[in-house]
Design a protein around this nucleic acid. Structure first.
Lengths: 115, 115
DNA sequence: ACCTATTTGTCCGTATGTATG
DNA sequence: CCATACATACGGACAAATAGG
């Protein structure tokens, strides 16, 4: 799992970390039961603070993607696997939307409306 | 096609009108070849200026959703139909996501990442 | 085919608020 | 604080397309 962070981006750092990890799971790079890098480990390799990674991890826990336990680290849940199943269709959907000239905001609005 | 506008919203009026019409098309309330209400008609029913609605319509024309010609009004294009089809698939995706126990926030995040 | 009245979007300018320098 | 630029929303006048007789 190789992640990158853009310190010049307007998106907050913890959001970028969360998105990166989520994407990795969605792409099947980490499956149910797999252990993610520890917060300290990941923070070091990204050059950000440990709390930034923990903030991201806690968000992913609230989404149900990972279990987070003291002493054991972050483990991908079954929900994480379900995401990988759906991600391919989501990517396909994104391509179609782009081909139709739809703005990302429009697509996101439609998705939100359907949930 | 029943639209509503929130004059207290921070979103600009013409954007709200555009979003409302776009959503109506996405939901199949107006299909290819159908005529939308004239700008004056819609403006009256929404309580905004004609030009505000026209501004929204012109934006939708640039997106390719409608044809706009004087004397004839706004007509939904084939692209409008394609978006409606896309929206049906989005709804289907939402159902699957829910069945898999994925949180709405996760789905939205994945869609954003794919765009 | 003609004329005219209506419908409809386009073009002109103006006021107001919001950044930007 | 001031000046400038830009976008939004509004109003009036205009011209093209349409509809009816």
């Amino acid at each position: 799992m190789l992640l990158r962070i853009d310190t010049t981006s307007e998106e907050s750092l913890f959001e970028q970390v969360a998105t990166a990890v989520r994407t990795a799971i969605a792409q099947g790079e980490a499956r149910a039961g797999d252990r993610l890098p520890s917060a300290r480990e990941l923070a070091d390799s990204l050059g950000v603070n440990v709390h930034t990674v923990l903030h991201a991890y806690q968000g992913l826990r609230e989404e149900g993607l990972i279990d987070l336990r003291r002493g054991r680290g972050a483990v991908v849940t079954e929900v994480g696997d379900a995401i990988a199943q759906l991600n391919r269709d989501i990517v396909e959907l994104g391509k179609r939307a782009k081909a139709l000239g739809m703005s990302p905001a429009t697509v996101v609005a439609l998705v939100k409306a359907s949930l």
